[in-house]
């Protein structure tokens, strides 16, 4: 045995797996967000939307770990948002609307997931896209209930029974989004370190081995899918409560593409990636739209191109590399 060990301990290019600590960058990121929101009040809205989208992109990150790309995940975001819009006239309490929206999106995720986790790669991606477009069509065509492309105005909400002033409400939404972002970030981090999370990566590399370990790859993927739907629904509720207006555009395929775009931009190597990507995306969009109103998409495209060419690990991968080198 010992002879065996000696002869085998000469791996080609072996490098011990290392993970960079995320705690300090996360704390710095939170501090920076709060500082910017305080220093530039109008950016509070932008950052709240960015945090909400970051939560949705966390779900995309889970699927990316399994090597699957969903081009239809905006359907869960839209489900959460429309749940808030539909129920708000009867129940204005934000702290009830939020879990309700998340629950409905989760149930939709379970129903859709049971079907789509049977497929992989392009089929998985396109089935998600197709189903999201069905939802988009329903939201657009059922005008009597959804007001079509006009969308639905969300009623003024209460927080723990109180109806704060606008400025306070903006801070509350920002704080709620930040809190949920932290909680979901920690949840995803713990999940990815668990056997289920590790098995998720196994779907990408060795699905056959999973089956020969007695593990259902479909169940592993389904759990991740439902969790991603939960996060998508939560994100949608936050978007609806922040923007107070929902339209079918939330479920359109370009919205799903935006989530994938943010995932690549931020990097899938860490739970911080989606939030870095979402913040960068929203800020570039806001400032690019202000500077060159007709060409902001071109600027976003150029940013993504640069990331793919020069930082394939996304913004997080770039930061992690710099921190590792300086350590």
């Amino acid at each position: 045995m010992s002879g065996s060990a000696n002869s085998l301990s000469r791996p080609a290019g072996a490098a011990p797996a290392r993970s960079l600590g995320e705690g300090l960058p996360a704390l710095l990121g939170i501090a920076a967000l709060v500082l910017v929101a305080w220093a530039v009040p109008w950016l509070k809205f932008v950052l709240t939307i960015a945090l909400a989208k970051g939560i949705a992109v966390l779900g995309i990150l889970l699927l990316l770990r399994a090597g699957q790309v969903s081009f239809g995940h905006a359907m869960f975001l839209a489900t959460g948002a429309y749940t808030v819009a539909f129920v708000a006239p009867f129940q204005t309490e934000a702290l009830l609307l939020l879990p309700l929206a998340a629950l409905l999106a989760t149930l939709l995720g379970l129903a859709v997931g049971l079907f789509v986790v049977r497929y992989r790669d392009i089929f998985f991606g396109m089935l998600n896209l197709a189903l999201s477009m069905v939802l988009y069509s329903l939201l657009e065509k059922l005008y009597e209930y959804t007001k079509g492309t006009d969308g639905i105005r969300v009623s003024v909400l209460t927080f723990a029974g109180l109806r704060p002033e606008r400025e306070t409400q903006e801070w509350l939404m920002f704080g709620l989004a930040l809190l949920l972002a932290v909680l979901f970030g920690l949840l995803v981090r713990a999940y990815l370190a668990s056997p289920m999370g590790r098995a998720l990566a196994g779907i990408k590399t060795r699905e056959t081995r999973l089956e020969f370990m007695g593990v259902s790859a479909r169940r592993v993927l389904l759990f991740a899918y439902v969790l991603s739907a939960l996060m998508g629904g939560t994100a949608g509720a936050l978007v609806a409560m922040t923007s107070r207006h929902v339209t079918p555009q939330l479920a359109y395929w370009t919205s799903s593409g935006e989530l994938v775009f943010i995932a690549i931009l931020g990097g899938a190597g860490s739970a911080l990636g989606p939030f870095l990507g979402a913040a960068a995306f929203e800020l570039v969009r806001v400032y690019a739209a202000a500077a060159v109103a007709d060409a902001w998409q071109m600027i976003l495209g150029a940013v993504l191109l640069l990331v793919i060419l020069f930082a394939p690990g996304g913004i997080w991968g770039m930061l992690a590399g710099r921190l590792r080198r300086s350590a």
Partner: peptide, 28 residues
């Protein structure tokens, strides 16, 4: 083998699979 994981993680994953404990919050 799960090529993104270490040898230890590969072995631990097989042990976890046998144990059937698939809590999403327990570290591998």
């Amino acid at each position: 083998l799960f090529t993104e994981h270490t040898v230890l993680e590969n072995a631990a994953l097989a042990i976890a699979a046998r144990a059937g404990l698939w809590s999403p919050l327990v570290p591998l």
